[in-house]
Each structure stands twice: as structure tokens, then as C-alpha cells.
């Protein structure tokens, strides 16, 4: 019992400390922003400065999630979801519904234009409305007509696209001679044994890797004995590839972080570069 009480008191006292720290950080942020950004400099607009301060505040709040969930993060998260939703709605209206539905039909310039535009759009508009039947429990099956169209399209197109860009392109890359012929006799004479052997080794590495990874995906062959060894080679290839791809991304992600730090330094705190 005492142990439980102890943890409760310790967690509640920790919460108090965290709250105090949080309030302190927010106050500090406010004071620093006010000191650095006000009074406004020549050519600065009030709303832009407020915008930058809000942006900097949101940056700190999202990083605070790395420590743990907190009230400010919850506010920022919900606000962000809302803003993104509003932005998406306006953009959809401006780029899709207004030019494709509202303008051609409700603001048609002539009757010819109206009928012409309607003939192209009547099907997707009906399907779009059918999609809305999801809001009713009884008629929601009607939305199947709309998404059936998309699934069918995706499946049919998929066969073609996959054959082109995965099967043919990859086979084209895979099927090539282990050693390219060197036509220039002068170059050929200067090649050391290592220079000649190296491309062959590389091509073999790729061929073995591709075949063993493909083997790893076999579903109807038990991975036992020889098969087990071969699929293990495949797994090793996969792991090295995943590692390589992981390592390859690290620098890109670091530069994003640096970008945020630069925003805070140069735009919020106005430290001169």
C-alpha cells in the first residue's frame, strides 16, 4: 500500500514540477519574443511578426512531444488538424469543385455550355452523391457503386503498370552479360585481372541477391534444408538493403532538423547570418 501511495505522491509532485516548468517556459518564450521582435522594425508588418512568433511557438510545442504528451501539444495538434482540414477544404473547393462542378454548371455562360459540361460530369456527380449515402445506415451500400469504380480502375491499371515498371524494367536491368565486352584493345590490354574480375563479381552478387530474395517470398515451398539456407541468404540481402536505405535517409532528416533550428535562429530570434 505504502509503495502505491509513494508512487502516487511522487507522480503528482512530478506533475506539479512539470506544470511549473511548462508555465515558466511559456513565459520565457513570451518575454524573449517580445524583447526581440518589438518594437517593429522598418518594413515589418505586425501580422507577419505575430505569425513568426506563432510559428516558433508551434515548433517548440511539437518538439515538447519528444519529452511527453502535454496540454500545449494537445492544443497544437488539434489546431493543426483543424487548420489542415480547413486548408484542404478550401483547396478542394478552389481546385476541384469550383472549376469542375460549380463554375461549369451553376455559372454556365450559355445553355450550350451547360449541356455540354453536364454530359461529361453527370456520372461522377451522381457517384459523388452516392458516396454521401455512407451517412445513412440503411442506404450506405450505395457507396459501393462509387468506390467500386475506383477499385476496378486501380486493379485493371495496376496489372498494366506493374508489368511495365516492375516486371519488364527489372528484368531488363537484371538480364545482362556478367562482363561487358571491351572493344578497345588498348584499354583491354591495360586492364588488370582485378579490373576484369570485379564487374563479374558485382553482377553475380546482384544476380544471387535478386534470386534469393525472390526465393524468400515463395509461399508454397517449405523453407527447410536447402531452401532454408537460400531464403536466409535472401533475408541477409534484405537486411543489408534496409540498412543501406536507412543510412541513406539519415542525412536528409538531419537537414530538416537543421532547417527548423535555422528558422528559430534567423527568423524568430533574428540572429544575423
Amino acid at each position: 500500500m505504502t509503495a502505491v501511495d509513494n508512487t502516487q505522491t511522487s507522480s503528482s509532485s512530478r506533475r506539479t514540477i512539470e506544470l511549473v516548468v511548462l508555465v515558466g517556459l511559456v513565459t520565457a518564450f513570451g518575454i524573449i519574443s517580445a524583447l526581440v521582435r518589438f518594437p517593429l522594425e522598418e518594413g515589418e508588418k505586425l501580422r507577419d511578426v505575430i505569425g513568426i512568433i506563432i510559428g516558433a511557438g508551434l515548433t517548440f510545442i511539437f518538439y515538447s512531444f519528444l519529452y511527453r504528451d502535454n496540454p500545449l501539444f494537445k492544443i497544437a495538434e488539434n489546431l493543426y488538424v483543424g487548420v489542415a482540414l480547413g486548408y484542404g477544404a478550401i483547396i478542394t473547393w478552389r481546385q476541384s469543385l469550383r472549376p469542375e462542378v460549380y463554375d461549369p454548371l451553376f455559372r454556365a455562360v450559355t445553355s450550350e455550355a451547360f449541356w455540354h459540361e453536364l454530359s461529361y460530369r453527370v456520372v461522377p456527380i451522381v457517384l459523388g452523391i452516392l458516396l454521401m449515402t455512407r451517412l445513412s445506415k440503411k442506404h450506405s451500400w450505395l457507396s459501393r457503386y462509387s468506390y467500386g469504380l475506383m477499385v476496378g480502375w486501380g486493379a485493371g491499371m495496376g496489372i498494366f503498370v506493374v508489368t511495365d515498371s516492375y516486371i519488364l524494367k527489372q528484368l531488363e536491368g537484371a538480364i545482362r552479360p556478367l562482363q561487358k565486352i571491351v572493344t578497345d584493345p588498348d584499354v583491354a590490354a591495360n586492364l588488370s585481372f582485378f579490373d576484369q574480375a570485379w564487374p563479374v563479381v558485382g553482377s553475380l552478387v546482384i544476380l544471387i541477391g535478386t534470386v534469393s530474395v525472390l526465393f524468400y517470398f515463395f509461399f508454397s515451398v517449405p523453407h527447410k534444408r536447402l531452401g532454408s539456407g537460400f531464403s536466409r541468404v535472401g533475408i541477409s540481402y534484405l537486411m543489408i538493403a534496409f540498412g543501406a536505405s536507412f543510412g541513406y535517409t539519415v542525412m536528409g532528416r538531419m537537414s530538416l532538423l537543421i532547417g527548423r533550428v535555422q528558422f528559430l535562429m534567423f527568423e524568430w530570434l533574428k540572429i544575423k547570418q
Partner: peptide, 8 residues
């Protein structure tokens, strides 16, 4: 190895 695995 990366090319081989991706291709597979």
C-alpha cells in the same frame, strides 16, 4: 546488395 534486394 541494395539494388539486388530492391529488384527482388
Amino acid at each position: 546488395p541494395n539494388l539486388a534486394a530492391t529488384r527482388g
